[in-house]
Amino acid sequence: MDVFMKGLSKAKEGVVAAAEKTKQGVAEAAGKTKEGVLYVGSKTKEGVVHGVATVAEKTKEQVTNVGGAVVTGVTAVAQKTVEGAGSIAAATGFVKKDQLGKNEEGAPQEGILEDMPVDPDNEAYEMPSEEGYQDYEPEA
């Protein structure tokens, strides 16, 4: 019985440690998101679009440190934060509304985080759909 109880105690310690790591990862992701939003706020009209992409990228980098179902929630929060940063930029006159959601080359930025393969159960990952990809044929 002692062996059984000791095993359960060790398992509990492992769960607590994993929860603490997840909590730490979420806190880091939130900190990076805040950094990115402050970065966007300090940019001029020309830099705002690039700044919004930076927020998304920093958040995406930190999301990889967070495991399990938390990833889905962090990704949703990050996307809403990026959308909010863009709205703030438009409201303050840093950028025109028609410039939001495009990178410096004018290509749409939507789907940055949505296409990231995420499995809350950590069982399997699927690649994003290939609808947006084109076949590449090298020139002879």
Rank of each mutant, 00 (worst) to 15 (best):
V3W: 02
F4S: 00
F4V: 02
M5F: 03
G7V: 14
L8F: 01
S9I: 10
K10H: 04
K10N: 04
K10E: 01
A11Y: 03
A11W: 15
A11S: 02
K12P: 00
G14C: 13
V15A: 03
V16L: 10
V16I: 14
V16Q: 05
A17S: 11
A18W: 15
A19C: 04
E20G: 01
K23L: 12
K23Q: 08
K23I: 02
A27M: 15
A27Q: 14
E28S: 09
T33H: 01
K34L: 07
E35C: 11
E35M: 14
V37K: 01
V37I: 07
L38P: 00
Y39V: 05
V40Q: 00
K43I: 14
T44R: 01
T44W: 15
E46N: 12
V48R: 01
V49S: 12
V49N: 03
G51P: 01
A56R: 10
A56Y: 15
A56V: 12
E57L: 06
T59K: 01
T59E: 00
T64K: 05
N65R: 11
N65M: 07
V66K: 03
V71F: 09
V71W: 15
G73Y: 07
G73H: 12
G73P: 02
V74R: 01
T75L: 15
V77Q: 02
Q79S: 10
Q79C: 08
V82M: 10
E83H: 06
S87A: 12
I88W: 14
A89N: 03
A90Y: 11
A91H: 09
T92E: 04
T92L: 11
G93F: 02
G93E: 05
K96R: 09
K97W: 15
L100M: 06
L100F: 02
G101R: 07
N103A: 05
G106N: 05
P108K: 08
I112T: 09
D115F: 12
P117H: 05
D119G: 10
D119S: 03
D119K: 02
N122D: 10
E123P: 08
E123W: 11
Y125S: 07
E126P: 12
E126M: 09
P128E: 05
E130C: 10
E130L: 07
E131H: 08
G132N: 11
G132K: 07
Y133D: 15
Y133K: 03
D135V: 10
Y136S: 14
Y136R: 10
E137N: 04
P138M: 06
P138V: 08
P138W: 11
P138N: 03
